[in-house]
Nucleic acid binder design. Structure first.
Lengths: 209, 209
DNA sequence: TCAATATATGAAGGATCATTCGATTTTAGG
DNA sequence: CCTAAAATCGAATGATCCTTCATATATTGA
């Protein structure tokens, strides 16, 4: 990541010997595990240290405080992700658009899936854990509403309508979230929204629905 | 939401008089504000109560503990969102697919944008605030990598290639995240992934790029 | 007007947690 | 083997926070 970390989030010192490299690695790994098994509000320095098999003091040799730990974790993760996509892009320079899209989707998807625990740990929102029940119920309602609508279309094709439906929902909802996260200027947001409509329309025209 | 809240997340008592309705409303509003201005790790019961202009004790009349407050907030938000989409769907029963898609995208998009503060407050991830710098840097790298690739295609159309590029990225990244959040079975995930490729391909064929 | 009920208060208890630092152990390199 | 630098340890500190409960105020309905 070329984003220079805010000074207060800098790591304290760089590991010089082999064992300290191991230590830092263990701390990262422990952070992910605690995040997944206990959630953010139980992510304490002591717990992470214990899980990593080191003492709290050791943690503070490498991270000035808790926030810096989370920041570094995220940074490392995003950096790896970015590198993989960049490589895939380079590998497809000059190719036809079909294989570009294929490569892009596949690479990103796979990178996220490969270590889905990390992905999930970092995705978790402020509400945590019990949240899942809400999300599920919400998803069900949406599925029901939109698939009922879709099936009522005069030109509906019933072959794979459920798959088309769930795809549409994932794409639309996900895109909105992503646009939010990137915090793009309003005009660009609006432009993307229009493109999204075009895209979904084209998709519906070719794939039954 | 028809997801019966886990017992330990139930609200304590229902407001019966007018003033307590106001109170609960103020608490919700204060939660959002504190979440936005201070972040999750500074969201304390005292702070929320103070912002809401009530005492801590009052909060505990309606929410058995902090988690229940966040849960309720999320629940209310998702419920409102779901209702709006459902209504839009009902309003377009029997319509042609074009207007269905248009309505779906527009409704969801607008609901999220209308109170973007709430949306953002609930979207915030575990890393919080300083995270934005990382996300920005990541987005820049991705934009650069993919747009360089796209422009190298033999059949590239330079008219609106930047918009096409940013749309593709938002759609792909967002979809992945959404699929993750919904925690669908692997087989369905894979099916959606294939659909996503189809969709992007179709999009690229019609819109320059 | 007056009890019964609903709502509000906030100091205090008890628990958890982030962070420090002086002491100890381990490693590298001469 | 020996010493300086690197790495580790973990009890102690001080701060923050969640939650309770006894008390006080407000509202309702008769």
């Amino acid at each position: 990541m070329d984003a220079t970390p805010p000074r207060h989030l800098n790591t304290r010192k760089k590991p010089r010997q082999a064992r300290s490299v191991t230590t830092v690695e263990a701390i990262f790994e422990a952070t992910i595990q605690v995040l997944l098994s206990e959630g953010i509000h139980r992510l304490t320095t002591t717990r992470v240290a214990e899980r990593a098999g080191v003492s709290v003091g050791t943690m503070y040799q490498y991270f000035p405080h808790k926030q810096a730990l989370l920041y570094a974790l995220n940074e490392r993760y995003l950096d790896l992700l970015a590198e993989r996509v960049e490589q895939a892009c380079r590998a497809h320079h000059g190719a036809v658009k079909e294989s570009m899209v294929e490569a892009l989707v596949t690479t990103y998807w796979q990178a996220k899936t490969e270590r889905s625990d990390v992905t999930r740990a970092l995705y978790n929102s402020v509400v945590e854990l019990d949240n899942q029940a809400l999300i599920d119920a919400f998803a069900k309602r949406m599925d029901a509403a939109t698939s009922a609508m879709l099936k009522s279309a005069p030109d509906a094709d019933y072959a794979n309508i459920d798959l088309v439906n769930v795809t549409l929902l994932s794409v639309i909802f996900g895109t909105v979230r992503n646009v939010f996260e990137r915090n793009l200027p309003g005009s660009e947001q609006e432009a993307i929204r229009r493109e999204l409509v075009t895209m979904c329309l084209g998709y519906l025209k070719t794939s039954g629905g």
